[in-house]
Design a protein around this nucleic acid. Structure first.
Length: 276
DNA sequence: AGCTGGTCCTGATGGC
DNA sequence: TGCCATCAGGACCAGC
């Protein structure tokens, strides 16, 4: 999936509909996601009250009475909410179903790179979970700015784009939004991160926040599988300036947008606006 | 056949 | 030479 905007849109919708409600029943149809869902999960969750659904990076956190359900959407996951009685038949790749106070909530994930894990309160603070402990700062944290990026990249020879994708410096920026943010900040995706100065990092931090905020407003991006909990597609991709636009004119200068591969990931940029 | 939103893990590489 | 930080590639999977 699902990068930060798609997860944020999902978290908000789930929170609005489910916060404070009780899980009546949980059914697991296919437990083989990225990691096998333990057979005890349904029993563990049933009967617990959902305190709050939130997000950390690209992880959804469902805070329940006795622990936290951690859910990641991988490359192709989405949660759908239906009203009980009006829920359509299960679809292919619906792997998990929650029944919650008149709602039927389903996890669909064709590629099954997603994950569903249980973290008991007894296991300590969920943010110290091995999947969450090493994550970078939230892009909407007030401490995130150009100086943060500058400090985090001194001495780093890696290209800036894969470093952004790594999520150890700042979370939530996946392939689409890294591409768009670098385009907006006029930074070539192959620039060694340690060679970018404060000025350009100030532009990049602002661009990341702007791009993510706009994507959230538009319901995220849908390439193929992602939809909001209401089944509606995200509309960000329609306004993308560089992503997926190889050969088309750069909206700023008219030069053709170019495509290259960085670590098997497609990157789009304007060779005139984004100089190496 | 070669693409596609993510990220964990392993093994290799390079700097000090 | 040895340790550590960093990086590249493979793995997971379905659909177009």
């Amino acid at each position: 999936m699902p990068e930060l905007p798609e997860v944020e849109v999902t978290a908000r919708a789930l929170a609005q509909r489910l916060d404070g409600r009780r899980l009546d029943a949980v059914r697991v149809f296919n437990r083989q996601l990225r990691w096998r869902i333990p057979s005890s999960l349904a029993r563990t969750l049933s009967g617990q009250r959902i305190e709050h659904v939130s997000r950390r990076g690209k992880y959804l956190l469902w805070r329940l009475d006795n622990g936290v359900l951690i859910s990641h959407l991988g490359m192709s996951g989405s949660w759908r909410v239906h009203e009980a009685g009006r829920a359509p038949a299960r679809e292919r790749h619906d792997h998990v179903e929650l029944h919650c106070d008149g709602a039927v909530v389903r996890l669909n994930d064709p590629r099954r790179f997603g994950a569903l894990l249980w973290h008991a309160h007894a296991g300590g603070d969920v943010l110290r979970h091995r999947l969450l402990a090493g994550l970078g700062i939230e892009p909407f944290d007030p401490r995130f700015n150009g100086q943060w990026l500058f400090d985090a990249t001194r001495g780093r020879r890696s290209a800036i784009k894969p470093l952004l994708l790594g999520g150890k410096i700042v979370v939530g920026v996946g392939n689409i939004y890294a591409t768009e943010s670098l385009y907006e900040a006029r930074i070539h995706p192959q620039t060694p991160a340690g060679r970018i100065g404060r000025l350009r990092y100030a532009r990049l931090a602002a661009a990341i926040r702007r791009v993510l905020a706009q994507a959230i407003d538009l319901g995220g991006s849908t390439l193929r599988d992602f939809t909001g909990t209401d089944g509606v597609s995200g509309r960000y991709i329609e306004i993308a300036q560089a992503y997926g636009r190889e050969g088309l004119a750069c909206p700023r200068c008219g030069a053709p947008i170019r495509r290259l591969l960085q670590g098997q990931r497609a990157t789009y940029f304007c060779a005139r606006c984004q100089r190496l």
